[in-house]
Design a protein around this nucleic acid. Structure first.
Lengths: 196, 196
DNA sequence: GTCTATATTGCGATAGAC
DNA sequence: GTCTATCGCAATATAGAC
């Protein structure tokens, strides 16, 4: 009833699946890394894919929090800043989330449709609603599609985390630099880079 | 000397590796899909990894074209539009490129450092130089980091293609809609979404 | 709940014929 | 240049002891 190995397997699975994908890890390695016997994976999760699904479900659960940003109301501009902060914080607390996010977008497993796609869609929809709101209030320009703007915003922030591996030589990715990042991205999205 | 199977293997490898990753495809399936015998993979590429490297090299060769955008000179704003158009066109002509791009960023293979990372770095560096140029000319605001702006721009465009699978319900991804997309992204990046 | 031992399948690579 | 046949190994899953 203690199921210690279950937790150890989820933890090992999160790290290993994130780093090498569903097909890049063997059940042997998973159980070895969790200090469990190979049969524990079948016992708890019915096989490797079941463990992967459990890991995915846990990782994407936090996407529901987007609701809170929208329903606390207030200024669309503040909500956009809230989204940027929430996203960066989310990736700091879930260091492997983006691996699953992009890995599923490019090499979808059977769990993409059930777990990943709805989570992403919900965030983009919510952002688009916030932006459309700002348009109705006259705060934002109406000659831009709200959904295009929503993906532009999500893309700026997500790509920054995604590109970490390739851009380490170009700038620091330490949490201490997040504030200047937030300021820049918020400025670009709302006021653009143009002078004057 | 005809090496027909070599070409067939590269083509099959491009599609299959893009869809399921290096570890998600077997040599048997690759050769079956290319109508070649299983031994052809070793004969031409020295093994599955060698075929993967050849595919990667071919896919990322087009990144060198970023040079042309910069060295043809002219207005930084026009170069930025040139970058957006070039990127979208590149993904239309190389439908599998983004799969390799993000797959390597999140689950790097031994070829990431040699092929992928330099290609991405070069693009970000070039964009940052273009933006820094615009700052010196007084066209762009100087209170934003040029590299942050460069990743913001690259992120907007790349994420749009990346998220295709999850956002098909939200907007069309057909080439015919590219023009309105280019207009929106260019407007957001340069003038932002704010009214007035 | 956790282990060891094993059954079975499929893998990547290559030898050798043509 | 391309094939068939095969070797040796590692994969997943499970039976059965404790």
């Amino acid at each position: 009833m203690k199921a210690e190995r279950r937790i150890a397997l989820i933890e090992a699975g999160t790290r290993l699946f994130a780093e090498r994908g569903l097909n890049g890890v063997s059940v042997r390695e998973l159980s070895r890394s969790a200090d469990a016997s190979i049969s524990m994976v079948s016992y708890y999760f019915g096989g490797k894919e079941g463990l992967y699904a459990a890991v995915l479900e846990e990782q994407f659960a936090c996407f529901d929090q987007i609701e809170e940003i929208r329903k606390q109301g207030g200024d669309p501009l503040a909500m956009i800043e809230g989204y940027i902060r929430w996203t960066i914080r989310r990736h700091r607390t879930h260091p492997y989330l983006l691996r699953f996010y992009t890995s599923e977008l490019t090499n979808p497993t059977p769990y993409f449709a059930k777990i990943v796609s709805p989570a992403i869609e919900k965030v983009i929809r919510t952002l688009a609603e916030i932006i459309a709101d700002g348009m109705r209030r006259g705060q934002f320009r109406t000659n831009i599609h709200a959904v295009s703007a929503a993906t532009a915003l999500a893309g700026m922030v997500s790509y920054h985390m995604l590109s970490t591996l390739a851009t380490q030589a170009l700038f620091g990715h330490a949490p201490v630099e997040d504030e200047s990042l937030i300021r820049d991205y918020l400025a670009i999205f709302t006021r653009g880079i143009q002078a004057g």
